[in-house]
Structure formats: structure tokens, C-alpha cells
Amino acid sequence: MIDWYFSHIVLIQSTLTTLLLALSVQVPLRAGVFSFAGVGCYGIGGYIAAIGMVHYGLSTATAILLAAVAGGVVAYALGLLIQRLTGLYLAMATVAFTLIISVLVVNGGDLTGGAAGLFGALGMLDTGHLLAVAAVVVAALTFTELGPLGRRVEAVREDPELASAMGINVARYRRATFAVSGVLGGLAGSMTVLLRSTVTPDDINFHLVVLALTIIIVGGSRSWIGALVGTVIFVWMPEMLAFVGEWEDVVYGVLVAAAAVYLPGGVTGAVVDGYRTYRRKRRETADSPPDAPPPQPAAAAVGGDS
């Protein structure tokens, strides 16, 4: 087990950072905001952390904190600027934002290292730290998925007009998702870079947008569990597919396309549906007497001396 852990430590760690990246796109999507600003903030966070460590000798924790705050602030400001946009127009504007970041760092001179990027930014991070950050994030997100808050977020996604008629400040919710996605993107970017020790302009690209989206749709877009499932699938897939050798990418494409066709709710949706069907079938067959849980006799509750 220990051996297995150490030889797979990179995959375990990158599962956690990729999860944060996927969440940075999923959080706005859950509120009906089709924004990829989180990916741009991933780049911003990565560069801030690297610049902080390489040029200013910041500590790992400070660098990550700074990256997260900067990501949140930039994304919130962007949200203010483009809050009128919806749908794919919003998606395009945020993709444009992400790609502009990449051009800026190419032209950033010594500060960003130009086309070659920065290297030697090795942070003091271990799996424990990453787990702690991911756990805090997931706990906070669970809170936004359940209860009245969860229902309000759902209303903002499904029917903004109705939501605002019900007294929900839709615009505020939307802006908030920008800030949250910025913080998550900043965290993901800074931790990825500090684990890798290098960052280049090439890291901020359209493929990252595609990856994040694929993870969410294949995993499941309604809850963090879906993002986690998708992340595990896509981070570990190269390892699992290594046996197909040179045609790995072809198999990858077939699997992704098949998931889009056959798993409408993503893997998590399929599992939940499957479980429900299973339960229903069980209940139907077991509807007749013996195994049904006997109604609790009132006496048991009263006569309570065990």
C-alpha cells in the first residue's frame, strides 16, 4: 500500500489539483453561468505563485494564498464587467479572457520569463496539504448544494426570471460564482505550479478549458461528486489505457464520445439512476410479505429497559 502510494503520488496529487480546476468551472455552471474565467485564474494563480517564489522568495502558503485572493478579485472584477452576457457569448468572452492572459505572460519580460516561462518554483507541498484544501473546498461547496441555498442556486440556473420574482438577487449570485471560481482557479493553478516547479505560457490554453468541461460533463455537473468522479477518470485514464499502446488517443476519443451519448447525467447520474432502478426493482419483487421491515410495534418504544 505504501509502495503503491509513493509510486502514484503524482497522480494522487494531480487528482486533487485538477479537481479544484474542474470545480472552478462547475460552480458557475451550477448557477447557470457558462464561464471559463476559472481557467484564466488558474493561469494567473500559477504565475503569481511562481513569481512570488522565484522573484520575491515568498513562502509556499503565502504564495498560494496570494494566488487565490488575486484569482478571486480578478474574476469578480471580470464578472462585474461582463455580467450582461449569457450563454455561449459569456463562454466566448471568458475564453477570450483566458487566452489574453496567456499572451500577456508571453510578453511579460523578465517578470514572467517570456516564452520560456519560470522554473525552480518548487513549493513545500505534500498530499496532506492538498487533501486539507480540497476537503475545505468540498465542505463549503456541499453547503451550497444542500438546503435552501442549494435550492436558490438551482432556481438561478433553471429560471432566472422566476428566481428574481421570488426575491433572489440573481445578479449577486452570478457575481458570487465568478469570485468563487476565481479563488478555486487560483488555488488550482498555484498548487499545480508549485508541485511541478515550472510554469510556461503554454500551460494556459484552450485545451485546459476543454479538459475542465469534459471532466464535468462526463463526471456529472450537478454536484462536486460528479467533478471528483470525472477528475479521477481523466487523471487516471492514461495510466489505465497504457496497455492499448499507440492507439491510446483513439480509445480515449471513443470513450469520451460514448460517455456523451450514453450517460446523459454523466457517470454519477448513471450510477444514481442505476441505484434507483435497482431499489425500485427490489421493492417491487419484495413487495409481498416476508422481507419487508415489520412496522415497529409501539411497545418497543415504550418498554425501553434493555
Binding site: 509513493f6 509510486s7 502514484h8 503520488i9 503524482v10 494531480s14 511541478r196 495510466e239 491510446e248
Partner: peptide, 12 residues
């Protein structure tokens, strides 16, 4: 497979 993560995972 053209991936930084796979490279460092395999290297580990």
C-alpha cells in the same frame, strides 16, 4: 503521452 502529469507520474 504528451502530458506533464503523466510524465511526472511515470517518473515517480
Amino acid at each position: 503521452a504528451g502530458s506533464i502529469e503523466t510524465a511526472s507520474a511515470e517518473m515517480a
